[in-house]
Amino acid sequence: MPGPDRSPTRGRQAARERIAAKRAAEQEAERLRRRRRGQLIAGITVAVVVVAAVLVTVLVQSARTDTADAVAPANTAAGTAETGFAVGSPGAPVTVDVYEDYLCPACRAFEESTGDTLDQLVADGEVLVRYRPVAILDRFSDDAYSTRAANAAAVVADTAGADAFHAFSESLFAQQPAENGPGLTDDELIDAAAQAGAQGDDVAAAIRDLRFGDWVASATDRASRDGLTGTPRILVDGEPLEAPTAEALSAAVEAAQG
């Protein structure tokens, strides 16, 4: 005999409720599933966009730093991959490499304290100095002075040779501008170039137009890959000098002579 709950009407009612509850649960599950799928797709999209942005940026920045077609100035020194200018006798027993940025105060200090010692060692035929201008301090200049000065030095070397380059360098360090301000103007660079022995309309145009700007970037990049992290960097027969002082330099040169 059927109990009170088993009347046909009540049974159908309960069944309908069960079906409705099941449908609601299914709809809820479907809603959650769709939301998760939506989030997954959005997440993958964001990840793909970020990876694509990274790749595009790497390509663009690599192109911006590419200096493969840079034109090197004439009169560069052997063994510097066209990035340096040598002063002294090629037969000198010791080679000194000097990496300098024309805006670097420590380089000016090195020139003041040790320039004469170095010049004397060159005059005595004891060392060959390979000067390697680099531009790593443009961000401390209102007008990219590091690059402009190194370009002008390359123009002088290109036109009048390594000794004129050396005279020009000394003159630039003697009138070095302060960091975080304007550098020497193009006209001042052109005057200094003329005094060092490089003059004429072509010199002036090359200084104004940054004829060797790409070369400066390329030389700086090569120096960085060779381990340059700051200036001045002085190598005595390839060995970094601990302190940029006249005493340290003399001692290192003496040691290198054996």
Binding site: I136, R139, T220, T229
Partner: peptide
Amino acid sequence: DPAAAERAVRA
């Protein structure tokens, strides 16, 4: 300044 960024990494 991408070249400076490379130098910063190398440092």
